[in-house]
Design a protein around this nucleic acid. Structure first.
Lengths: 241, 241
DNA sequence: CCTGCTACTATAACGACGTTATCGAGAACA
DNA sequence: TGTTCTCGATAACGTCGTTATAGTAGCAGG
């Protein structure tokens, strides 16, 4: 609650809050949200339950910090996608990145976009952890990647003249909907949900936005190659253990 | 757990399980998921906590029954949409219906599609409440409306020849993504998320699937009229209190 | 050295929760 | 009437989030 427990060094801080957040993320991935208890995360971190309350204020704030960490990881995943001359390929690569992050910790993704962690509690949310527009800095860091890619797409003239925010909202809705339904096992009838739903739907959306089908199809393949090159290059460097 | 507490009368059964489910739904809508406790739903139903365990087995099963009731309401909402000669208009009306159900009880919608209620617990899910394909009968009842509309769309020849299941998955993903992001306040920048995101994106998806933009636009307006006629005709008869 | 202060943590406790054991009320039936 | 069963109320147990209390370590000044 007071400071971060570290005097210097920004990458991979080894402070107590960091240990609590990472232990919570690990419990979330291994045992689901029902395993997140004050005593559980404390003992998994080698600490007492008081550490949770001194550094975060309670379990609710811890969970919110964990969800925010999820957006930080999404931001880092988006940062690995290079900016090419094909905005739709970039968007496809970001879609596959989002799916990778979601599948690495489905419960964390559920926490990031669920309602229970936002306004469920009685907080007036006028605190300092919510800065300018009601969303956390980590969230906006990830969102600007999407918004900038959509802005590049509109300014390229490849699709019709329309608001970049609307394009971003549609792209985001399509990816988020696909991922959520896949995580909830609603795409069990598809052997390869990416090849059968996510990517064809992206091509359809691009065509609906005004792109040519051939170019959209080519961007889909370019985006898949972009994703492969990025993920193969870093090869589980994001896994912390 | 044993019977339904009623001897006859299928519509609006007044048994104890029904009272518990409706009390839970009401608490969910008014105070969020954190208000769902055994003592809370019991006292809200004028009963003791034992009623929950006699009829459901525990809070987890109650919540699952509540989520299933959500699909029952979605099924009933879809049943109110008539089958016209314009499948895309029908799909637009169903999309608006889904958004209406979701906004009537956002936390219930979150429960229906979240991960926490499915495989979070340690159940092997080989029970009898999951019948044929891993989904509840109520879910499949709602889903067939979507699947049949997509089958009508494909067989109409209006879009390209493609698998109806893929069309259904894409339609579902798009609507579910839009609704989820809107419920999580991620569309706060849009004054009218329906007119600015949901409906234009539906037109784009229809165009991407192979429809003409003019016909898709006309179906969008026809679907909106269809939705208005249905909802204005029943006018809060679904609200149980 | 001791003293006071700060930052943080462990221990123990309190109230609330999910769950269960036990028992009583009422119906069905012989 | 007696038996059995269903069902729900009461009370209890263990766990949870949270808090009060007390303790440890480091540091400044004497």
């Amino acid at each position: 609650m007071r400071n971060m427990g570290r005097t210097s060094g920004d990458p991979t801080p080894d402070g107590v809050p960091e240990r609590l957040v990472q232990a919570t993320i690990r419990l979330l991935a291994e045992q689901g949200p029902s395993a997140i208890k004050a005593r559980t995360v404390a003992s998994a971190s080698g600490l007492s339950t008081m550490a949770v309350y001194h550094h975060f204020g309670g379990i609710a704030e811890l969970i919110r910090a964990v969800a925010d960490r999820g957006f930080t990881e999404l931001d880092r995943a988006f940062s690995q996608v290079p900016v090419t001359e094909d905005p739709i390929a970039d968007l496809f690569a970001m879609a596959l990145m989002t799916r990778r992050v979601a599948r690495e910790n489905p419960h964390l993704y559920d926490l990031m976009f669920g309602l229970s962690t936002r306004r469920a509690t009685y907080r007036p949310l006028s605190d300092s952890d919510v800065r300018s527009s009601g969303r956390s800095p980590a969230f906006r860091g990830a969102y600007v990647h999407l918004a900038e890619a959509c802005a590049r797409l509109v300014s390229s003239g490849r699709i019709g003249q329309q608001e970049p925010e609307a394009v971003a909202a549609q792209s985001w809705s399509y990816v988020h909907g696909c991922i959520t339904l896949e995580l909830a096992d609603h795409f069990a009838e598809f052997a390869d949900p990416v090849a059968q739903v996510l990517l064809p739907m992206g091509v359809n959306l691009a065509v609906g936005l005004g792109d040519d089908r051939e170019r959209a199809q080519a961007s889909h393949e370019a985006g898949a190659r972009l994703y492969d090159s990025v993920t193969r290059g870093s090869e589980d460097q994001a896994v912390a253990e």
